[in-house]
Structure formats: C-alpha cells, structure tokens
C-alpha cells in the first residue's frame, strides 16, 4: 500500500456510493405492473409480462437473433447467436431495475414496474 493507493481506494469508494446513491434516494419507478421492456437499437421492440405459462420470445434484430424465456419467475435470455453469450450469462432477472444487455445485437431487456406478486405494501406508516 502506497499513498496513491489509499487515494485510489477512496476515489473508488466514492464512485461506488455515488453510483448507488440515486437508487437509495429515489427507488425505481414502481408504477404499473411488473413487466419487461425489450429495446432493440434504442427503440421499444416489445413489452412482456412475467406471468402465465412459460414461453419463449424470439427477438429478431438486424444483427442477430436472441431468444428470451418468459415465465412467472422472470425473464432470461436462453439463446443468442452472438459470439460472447454474455446476455445468457446474465441469468434470470425478476425485479424492477434489473437489465439484460446483448451488446452485439443492441438488445436491452429492462424490468420495470411494481415488485412481483403484488403483496408488497406500497408504503408502511407507523
């Protein structure tokens, strides 16, 4: 540990906190039902709701094809014909604010809305 290292760690700590701060101060927009918005090349491609029978949705883009599995448990990328398959590695997302990104195909799946189940109170007043 040298003096610069200490400064570096301090800067990184500040960075982590400042990137997390907006989340803590104003939680995710939780209006409406929980849904996954699928964006392709910056434009809303489709919105799906994580409920009902498990199903698979093909996302056809100019750059390639992704397959998104939608179920009550959330959404998950299960196929992609890109080389890195990072979007598949991102696993299943089920809470508002989470994202799956497939950069080679410019696909962005984002969960928005209320928490799943609807049994979470809007607010707790003492």
């Amino acid at each position: 540990m040298k003096r610069g290292d200490v400064w570096l760690l301090a800067v990184l700590a500040v960075a982590v906190v400042s990137f997390k701060l907006p989340d803590w101060l104003s939680p995710q927009d939780s209006r409406g039902e929980l849904r996954a918005e699928i964006y392709v090349d910056r434009e809303l491609y489709r919105t799906v709701e994580p409920k009902g029978e498990p199903r698979e949705i093909e996302i056809r883009t100019a750059r390639g094809v992704n397959v998104l599995r939608v179920s009550e448990k959330g959404v998950q990328m299960i196929e992609a014909d890109c080389p890195d398959k990072l979007c598949i590695a991102m696993g299943r997302i089920d809470a508002a604010g989470e994202s799956i990104v497939c950069l080679p195909h410019r696909v962005w799946v984002k969960m928005v809305g209320a928490p799943p189940g609807g049994d979470v109170p809007d607010a707790i007043v003492f």
Binding site: A15, V101, L103, W108
Partner: peptide, 18 residues
C-alpha cells in the same frame, strides 16, 4: 455500451464491476 444502446442506465452496473 451506453453510446450504442443510447442510455446511461447501464451504468447502474458500474458499482458491481468496481
């Protein structure tokens, strides 16, 4: 990635990466 996707939202992931 933010440039390509047209959103700075993905920086939410930055703290984890740090």
């Amino acid at each position: 990635a933010a440039l390509v996707l047209g959103t700075t939202n993905i920086f939410y992931y930055f703290p984890v990466l740090i």
